[in-house]
């Protein structure tokens, strides 16, 4: 699957995550994460985003995530929505 345009999903509300995606630069999965719980869950959130992208067969993307303490299902659905909007 190929990302064709810039798209967004999610909000900056507490317990949500804001995702913005755009076409990659042939750098693979380029994820830029900021989070209020970066020290406690940074690695975990990055993995959830990676797995979601892989499950959608995305190979080249630039993804910016601003996390406000979202749970995994929120992260997955926001990533999926942003990607589908960008196809």
């Amino acid at each position: 699957m190929k990302i064709n345009k810039v798209a967004r999903a999610g909000t900056m509300e507490s317990s949500d995550i804001f995702i913005m995606v755009q076409p990659g630069d042939n750098q693979g999965l380029d994820i830029r994460l900021s989070s209020v719980v970066i020290d406690q869950y940074g690695n975990h959130i990055r993995n959830v985003i990676m797995e979601t992208l892989k499950s959608m067969n995305i190979e080249d993307i630039e993804l910016t995530a601003n996390d406000r303490g979202a749970l995994d299902y929120t992260i997955r659905s926001r990533v999926e929505t942003a990607v589908k909007r960008a196809l």
Binding site: V37, D39, Y41
Partner: peptide, 10 residues
């Protein structure tokens, strides 16, 4: 079960 286990802070 809902949030996972947090990593220990440095």
């Amino acid at each position: 079960k809902m949030i996972g286990k947090p990593e220990k802070i440095q």
